[in-house]
Write a protein that binds this DNA or RNA. Structure first.
Lengths: 112, 112
DNA sequence: AATCTATATAACAAATTTGTTATGTGAATA
DNA sequence: TATTCACATAACAAATTTGTTATATAGATT
């Protein structure tokens, strides 16, 4: 439990992962959409997502060209997820992310 | 809030700080007691405690030779503190710490 | 005042983490 | 089947973190 708790906290102990966590609460997203919103390179997002997946926080599914990532309704960690949501409420960086999220069109991103 | 959340999670994203957090729920403790229980050097414990103090999680007070560290009843983070307690419940490392805690006598530790 | 003693801090090495660029891979399309 | 596209992974540098040993400091004690 000590190891598990440490790992779980490490997942959330990173600004960009918190931002990803925040985005995925709105809807499923593919890697390039997240990279666009966060203004970070795609490989960086990929690695964050892999960590989040390994920890059981997110899942992924194929969707044609894209891989959708989504939040999993984990059982034990539900409480903390709820807590984080309330704690992050009102943050300006996250607000800006949400605005950029609205403008995202995955068919027009990436290698185009 | 994003920065603050990241920092708070970093505090708990370390095994030894989780162990210290667990110990301080029992009672105030001085540095050398904690170092003894965790079997880690005193400077290492000192730095962990400084971080925990900077984050507002613990406070300290002078007590003769010793400096007592204690958990502060922080306002906003109360919920997460409660959550962590329940999540760590039953861990074996922490149990062993508790046993060692019982045997600690600060007047017989350190430079003797 | 001189000396202890618990703790803080400095200095350093090892390990971990994060971002980047470059490149591989596998599914979808033409 | 050849190509394209989103994503994964490798390789690397920079930054951060953690533990250690050595040393400084400040409050007690003599």
């Amino acid at each position: 439990m000590l190891d598990k708790t440490e790992k779980l906290f490490k997942i959330f102990a990173d600004k960009n992962r918190l931002r990803i966590f925040n985005l995925l609460q709105q809807r499923k997203m593919c890697v390039c959409e997240i990279a666009f919103v966060l203004q970070v390179t795609q490989p960086s997002i990929s690695r964050h997502l892999r960590k989040m997946k390994e920890s059981g926080l997110v899942g992924d599914e194929q969707d044609g060209f894209w891989t959708n990532y989504f939040l999993k309704n984990s059982s034990g960690e539900n409480n903390i997820v709820f807590w984080i949501k309330s704690f992050l409420k009102g943050d300006n960086v996250l607000k800006a992310d949400m605005n950029r999220l609205k403008k995202v069109d995955r068919t027009k991103l990436c290698c185009r």
